[in-house]
Design a protein around this nucleic acid. Sequence first.
DNA 1: AAGCCGTGGTA
DNA 2: TTACCAAGGCT
Length: 350
Amino acid sequence: MRDTDVIGHDLLAWYDANARDLPWRVGPAARRAGERPDPYRVWLSEIMLQQTTVAAVRDYFHRFTTRWPTVTALAEAEDAEVMGEWAGLGYYARARNLLKCARVVAGELHGTFPDTREGLLALPGIGPYTAAAVSSIAFDRAETVMDGNVERVMARLFDVHTPLPAAKPELFAHAEALKPLERPGDHAQAVMDLGATICTPRSPACGICPLIGVCTARARGTAPELPKKTPKKPKPIRRGIAYLVQRSDGALLLETRPDKGLLGGMLGWPGTEWAEAPPEDPPIETEWRTLPGEVRHTFTHFHLILTLQASTVGPEAMPTRGQFMPRAEFRPSDLPTVMRKAFDLWQAKS
DNA sequence: AAGCCGTGGTA
DNA sequence: TTACCAAGGCT
């Protein structure tokens, strides 16, 4: 057998015995018995898992599939419902694209997901990784699935020292050479499970790795330092003010943020820009009290220090931004994390 | 094509 | 406390 066949065989044997039990997964035994996963659940899980850990996804996946069991049900949901259910999971463009995609599948494709990489790639929110993953996992098509796990496993198996992201084509070629024609879905999941549980970024468990005998980095002692990555830029600090306005009947002044950009489409408190720019006009004429303390939150590319200003207004107050939401309709869990932190601080200090 | 886009866990 | 990291996609 070729080395690539040995790796594929050992990997599948390991997967058969060690596959993680995941809510969206049909395990290797059931899969070999002919059971097929629900493409809707596979797609939903893959969108949620983009740059996100399994531990963070589990509860969200359960809530989404309970509330919207099919792609058609999801397609009929209102935007605010879906954004509220996604709140806290991050990368909110995923939620906007999730709904767009569900509406295309339900409205134009009779509720059936495409089964090919190309067909999936044409849908909103589905890129090269997700298209390959869904066609492979849900439809057992032989596609090369390349995510962060696969990159790391390939870099170690073949001792690739080229830093990411420049190394991607080289790593993809290695992954493609390993791609089997049999059980491609299980193979893809096996590589990712290996990367998530054994071939981990820090302190890889080489001692119990099924591929220890064929791993070049292991033989050369370089596994823990791979893959190499180009250094990241430091994160600047931005500041801003958030205004927490409560009406005398308890209603809270909130606004839905524009679809584009940071926290796009999410509910939040009116506020200034987050930068070094001078504060803008507050969203309502009133007396402000500055709350003690501040909200600290780190986004992908900057740190934020948010100060809070609070006020209580009468029933006649007319805001220039946002709208009052009755307290009974307000759920803190509908807020993205930074906005929920602001709410928590306001409650603690009020 | 390089920057933008969240969050919580971990060392 | 800080920095790194995770089943990436869009523009």
